[in-house]
Design a protein around this nucleic acid. Structure first.
Lengths: 97, 97
DNA sequence: CTCGATACTTTCCAACATGGAAAGTGACGG
DNA sequence: CCGTCACTTTCCATGTTGGAAAGTATCGAG
């Protein structure tokens, strides 16, 4: 309603996506497979969450052929970084940071 | 499984409940009505979330008749405080605290 | 050109979580 | 008895999830 509504972002708040954002926030980009291992979910589940982040304009999905193998690398967009940071700030406010 | 599984608590993570815990964490107790106003939800919704926190053993619900009116005050139990703090610590880890 | 492997994507589906509205409950005060 | 206050519970329609399985695209091998 108040400030909560402006910064609190459900797309970012869901556990798997919060983890993805947290991982991508501290690196330039990360492979799909690496993120999957870190988050500990299946291919299909990560794929669906990444899709949601992508549709929200928060994550950039780049497919590059490296060593004749398609590798998908993920990275936060500027909007994604802003949304993540705003959400984290809101979490800190709520949890008494 | 990993540290995430041990500290991350879905009961605490849901937005309305995270707010309730955050509010109760900094006071000894708070009236149902005050919490409802702060969280910005309806009676029924708060009641249902409080019930979940109560069933998890995180919140204590005390009904006292004050000025011939029943007043319900909520407070975190020791377990609730521990769960909240562990969850917050986990959030900080995930979000790069 | 067909086959199998790699690396995701999408679909299918059953389970669960939510919120709003409305009905229900218990304790007064009139 | 009745109405009010302060929640509780029920009803219901919707939205989100994850796992399993099928689907797609791109090689390299045969």
């Amino acid at each position: 309603m108040t400030a909560v509504q402006r910064r609190f972002d459900p797309v970012v708040h869901a556990p798997p996506r919060l983890q993805v954002c947290g991982l991508l926030a501290v690196v330039d980009n990360m492979d799909f497979a690496t993120v999957r291992e870190q988050v500990g979910v299946s291919d299909s589940v990560l794929s669906k969450h990444v899709k949601q982040l992508e549709e929200a304009g928060y994550v950039n999905v780049r497919k590059a052929t490296i060593a004749s193998r398609v590798r998908t690398s993920l990275s936060l967009t500027a909007a994604g970084r802003a949304a993540f940071e705003a959400h984290v700030a809101e979490l800190r406010r709520i949890t008494g940071g």
